[in-house]
Amino acid sequence: MDEKMTQRSVWEKIAAKLSKRSLWMLHYCTGCGAIELPPTMTARFDMERFGINPMVTPRQADILLITGYLSVKTLKRVVLTYEQMQAPKYVVGFGSCTINGGMYWNSYATMKSLDRYIPVETYIAGCMPRPEAIIYSFNELIAKIDRGEANSWKDYYNNYDFYRENQEHTFEGPIETYNDIKADAALFRI
């Protein structure tokens, strides 16, 4: 398994070099951290020079940016959105609420640790992080893709039962996009 991950074919390396410069971010403001996204996207701390653009539909986005805390009601919609995105996809946890609950650690309505529900690629520390910190972490993500190490999206298919059990413990309701998961896993031969 380790050999398969480190040896990439020439095509995969070229694909990584091209795709790392055109990552599209889903425009979904899930929590209070979203107030620092307009300065990052507009003229002052321009994010578009790295190729990162906001995109409105999850079917055409690569990065899911979870800006801050997630209440249980939003968590259900975020899991649905995550499953609708096409692989390879990257989740960036923004702020200290995704790490261990942050400011709302004793609240009855927010989730405490994001990577029990969906696999997370990188985290940005802060409450809230500055636009320069956001751009720094996007650069780290781009470097990780270039090296071929940004593979946490495969973890969702390998450990699907673990994630599903945690999701069902926290919120009820049918999560319907099971066919998308099977199709994606078959496509990438996982």
């Binding site: 709302y104 004793n106 609240s107 309505a109 927010t110």
Partner: peptide
């Protein structure tokens, strides 16, 4: 509404 509910009033009491 309710997507951003954190329970502030309860947090402030504790």
């Amino acid at each position: 509404a309710g997507y951003l509910h954190r329970g502030f009033e309860k947090l402030m009491e504790e």
